[in-house]
């Protein structure tokens, strides 16, 4: 798994490539533990995320809780259909805004 972060206007974009499972999710968990100063929106770009398990969902929910508690919006974009299905079945799709791709997300959030 590879994690990269960059900023576009007020949006902090975190891209995750590869698999988010019990062995890799602690890395994202540590990465999302602190919200960068001055950011108002956190966007998780999962376009190159090929797999997610409940361990990955756990980290996403934790990050969403932290953001909410800090008055920051957390959104997700770019889910491939098999990963989107896991978000749907877990009820996360109604909990966290999901955008089809980064451009659509930035058009709404930036």
């Amino acid at each position: 798994m590879q994690i990269d972060r960059f900023v576009e206007k007020n949006v902090v974009i975190t891209t995750v490539k590869g698999r988010l499972d019990s062995s890799t999710s602690p890395k994202l968990d540590a990465f999302m533990a602190a919200i960068p100063d001055g950011s108002s929106v956190l966007l998780l770009d999962f376009a190159e995320l090929t797999y997610i398990s409940s361990a990955g969902l756990r980290v996403v929910l934790k990050a969403a809780k932290l953001a909410k508690g800090s008055g920051v919006v957390l959104a997700i974009c770019g889910l491939i259909p098999p990963v989107h299905e896991v978000f749907d079945v877990s009820g996360f799709s109604t909990l966290i805004p999901i955008h089809p791709n980064r451009d659509a997300a930035l058009a709404t959030l930036a």
């Binding site: 409940s54 756990r58 929910l61 934790k62 809780k65 079945v89 877990s90 009820g91």
Partner: peptide
Amino acid sequence: LSGSIEERRIGGLGVHLVRTL
């Protein structure tokens, strides 16, 4: 599966996901 972000409990989803799919 219905609560808000604050209400949702972290964890306990694995069996649910597999049973549903």
